[in-house]
Amino acid sequence: MELKDIIKPENLVYDKPRLMNDNPMHYCPGCSHGVVHKLIAEVVEEMGMEDKTIGISPVGCAVFAYNYIDIDWIEAAHGRAPAIATAVKRLNPSKMVFTYQGDGDLAAIGTAETIHAANRGENIVIIFINNAIYGMTGGQMAPTTLEGMVTSTCPYGRDVTINGYPLKISNLLAQLEGTCLVTRQSVQNPAAVRKAKKALRLAFENSMNKKGTSVVEFVSTCASGWKMSPEKANKWMEENMFPFYPLGDLKNV
């Protein structure tokens, strides 16, 4: 007897999305990436857009996003995903196009590409993982690193007199005429995951309805980079990240 014979459709309460393949993920335990990946797979699948979706993966921890979600992917140079997505969507308007970017990729090296793609109102979805640290390179300061937060390149805590202030780039993007949805979400508990999925679905629908650029920021954990247990990272995020990066819609038109 196989698993599918035991689990009858009427008994099935939860299933992995078909678009998530069986490749073992390289993400650390407690990392938010895996959950966000799953949500993307679910939304694309539920919209029936599997064969029309093109993802642009970043440089950063999610560089290998293409290993896990079974759609066509383009791997971008660091920060350039919104420029790439611009051309992909303009040349292929019937396709559903999204970028998946971290805070360094989107809000430091790719600030210009992000702002200008959003300002042109490109019909794309920008998925923004903000964990306030460079995970892939080993925990350096990000543009979104909180004041006083310790990283390997601000080992005594971020000093705003030296490093400037943590950048609320979503607030900036919400000011632009080209964006139709800018929302800040998280995935640290089931309620947050459900909410985040709704936001993602709306973002993808906006892109197909030619409403302009949708930005979904995920305030996220980086247990390894923050040097905390997954559980503590979630708690730390709620206590420290959420006050500075409050969840909810910054813009929804």
Partner: peptide
Amino acid sequence: QAESEVAAINMVYGGAST
């Protein structure tokens, strides 16, 4: 018209990828 030459060549990368 792109916002920079950097963006323009990456738009080329995106278009060529399809």
